[in-house]
Design a protein around this nucleic acid. Structure first.
Lengths: 154, 154
DNA sequence: CTGACTGCAAAATCTTTGCAAAGAC
DNA sequence: GTCTTTGCAAAGATTTTGCAGTCAG
């Protein structure tokens, strides 16, 4: 995983090369996603930041604007949940896909070389210039399966 | 592909077994998706139905309620586009995944045995009870690639 | 200084809900 | 007749936008 000071460098040079400004808000959002491994909604990020830095007051619009900026540059990535919005995670780690538990919302990450390879094959077959993909395996996680068994046993 | 009269049977028995009612609106929505191969937003379905049957006046809420009903029963399936909503398609056909063109919005369907198999492997590896998956390959379709080349040549 | 960024609130988008009237069985 | 469904409009939820003030470079 990239070190935080290197990440900051990368972020700053991204900022400079696009005539953007380096602000406290933007840094805090990057930092939060860097330090907190996981998947968060904009609301969650906003709430966490409010809690951690209750002197600074980051508007929700800024969160959205910044996430969008960061996503364009690849620093964060998102998974979509339809009407239930998007969740964001730190993007500068090894590419992976997601297993999503419909019972508890838990998200597990995985990487499968065979699937990755096969996706390229498919894109090629259809003449698509593939720019990305997203894949979610939906199901019930181990923990929730166990819980259900316990409930049934009661 | 299932024949329309068989589909209607299946739909009616679904309706009965859940103490629901068989209505004109519901039939028209099922019929539309059956007859029109493709992927539609609720708005698009609403607009098309208004055009085809301008005597009947199906409210948008009914479209949403019906699609949701139909999705639960597997008669239709959806692909999500984040904030930009969902698109629905007739669901009683061979399972497949999607290639989505970000330039023109065109959706291509594909089925890849290797990927399907590998998804089960992954779920198993993580102890997930897999209930479904969704996968989109994002890219630029053949047609749009050609268009871009032409533009550049101008 | 200048132009980008921010917070706020208002707007926009997509979807759901409440309710009285209409319709299925 | 009873209970579900419908259409309408209003409400919700999430995200975006407009704007005046603030801040980075």
């Amino acid at each position: 995983m990239i070190a935080y000071n290197l990440l900051l460098e990368q972020f700053k040079s991204l900022i400079k090369s696009n005539d953007l400004k380096y602000t406290k808000q933007r840094e805090l959002i990057v930092k939060f996603l860097y330090e907190n491994d996981g998947h968060y909604t904009p609301e969650e990020i906003s709430a966490q930041l409010k809690q951690q830095y209750h002197d600074s007051n980051i508007g929700i619009a800024t969160i959205y604007r910044t996430l969008s900026l960061l996503e364009d540059s690849g620093i964060v990535t998102s998974i979509s949940f339809g009407v239930q919005g998007k969740k964001y995670e730190f993007g500068l780690k090894k590419h992976h896909d997601h297993l999503v538990c419909t019972s508890c919302g838990h998200i597990e990450e995985f990487y499968d070389e065979t699937i990755e390879h096969q996706q390229h094959e498919v894109a090629q077959k259809f003449g698509f210039r593939m720019t990305g993909h997203n894949m979610k395996i939906i199901g019930i996680c181990k923990v929730c399966q166990t819980k259900q068994l316990i409930k049934e046993g009661e």
